[in-house]
């Protein structure tokens, strides 16, 4: 039995926790325990607060990638959209002096429009999503540099509340992410739109012959991706206290890493929002654990790469064992 089939069934059985998520949870717990043993400061509420903000952030940008992977595409411009949206947010907050209640929806709209542009190009020109989003990545990055000149925009202190504060030790950012996860999970499990996107990614020809408009699904997924990238940009700006144009530059690789650790199928048709959440936790803990262990910062990426491979290898082995 294919692992993808299993994942699909898990989604349909309407259970939130799948076998795979349990495996990932175990991995996260082991990492958590190991770091707690090594470090004395790890279990402090401050560290937890900082780490859960990172988890929220990584999970959100990975979702932005995963929604495109689901329909059998990808979004290489996810970080570039984030950067461009940061600039839009900075411009509207500081230069235009708009209120946050107007600036944020405007930024989200910008992200959605960027995603719409991606989706329309993929569908209308029938070009591979790799090529379209690669080109659009350059365009969005160029726009953000041209408009901003590379300078960060100051934002009002009050704008930092969501990104910097929390309730009962849980950052607001984390709560936003949980809400997004719940919506995503609901969408893919219970709505026609979500299930049709899964169908398109699972077998586009069969989807077409079942009366599904694949183009709409691809456009929808890309809009969703842009929207999520914009949301992440807003939260990051709030956390940082200024709108930095280079915000999304490091996102791309992370989005793939977290989405894949979380069990998102690269060929489409498979997604587990809670798996991606676990992926976010694992990725954050790996990074944090390396810092706690005082690993040579210049070699940091080597360790991260090895640990990601290891996580995925263990997960796949477990799956093959399950199949017997």
């Amino acid at each position: 039995m294919s692992k993808d089939g299993k994942e699909a069934r898990a989604l349909e059985k309407r259970t939130v926790i799948t076998g795979r998520t349990i495996g990932l949870m175990t991995a996260a717990l082991i990492l958590f325990g190991a770091i707690a043993l090594v470090s004395s400061t790890f279990l402090s509420s401050y560290t937890m607060f900082v780490l859960s903000r990172q988890i929220a952030f990584f999970t959100l940008i990975a979702m932005a990638q995963a929604v495109c992977l689901v329909v059998g595409g990808m979004n290489l411009s996810v970080g570039a959209i984030g950067s461009m949206c940061t600039v839009v947010l900075g411009l509207s907050l500081s230069n235009a002096g708009l209120d946050g209640w107007i600036a944020v929806p405007l930024t989200l709209l910008c992200g959605a429009i960027a995603g719409l542009a991606n989706g329309m190009l993929i569908v209308k020109l029938r070009i591979d999503s790799f090529i379209v989003t690669l080109s659009m990545m350059f365009i969005f990055m160029g726009l953000r540099s041209g408009i901003s000149g590379g300078q960060p925009y100051p934002v009002p202190t009050s704008f930092g509340i969501v990104g910097q504060r929390g309730f009962m030790g849980i950052p607001y950012v984390f709560m936003v992410m949980l809400a997004v996860l719940a919506v995503m999970s609901y969408m893919y499990r219970n709505t026609v739109f979500g299930r049709r996107m899964l169908a398109t990614g699972g077998n586009a020809d069969a989807a077409r012959l079942s009366g599904i408009n694949n183009n709409n699904m691809i456009i929808g997924a890309n809009v969703l991706s842009g929207l999520l990238a914009a949301l992440a940009a807003v939260l990051w700006t709030s956390e940082l206290g200024s709108a930095a144009p280079e915000t999304g530059d490091s996102w791309l690789i992370v989005t793939f890493a977290v989405a894949i650790i979380g069990g998102t199928g690269l060929k489409g048709g498979v997604i587990s929002p809670y798996g991606i959440f676990m992926g976010g936790i694992i990725y954050t803990l790996i990074r944090h654990g390396l810092i706690e262990m005082k690993a040579n910062p210049y070699y940091m990426n080597v360790y991260i790469g090895v640990l990601i491979l290891l996580t995925i290898a263990i997960d796949r082995l477990r799956e093959r064992y399950d199949e017997r």
Partner: peptide, 28 residues
Amino acid sequence: EEGLFLRDTVRTNISVAVWPSLRHWLTR
């Protein structure tokens, strides 16, 4: 190739074309 979602369940494969008629108008 184009008739079935092979990796998906019997449920999805049978019901794929009726989803729109089974949804709640507001909560979808």
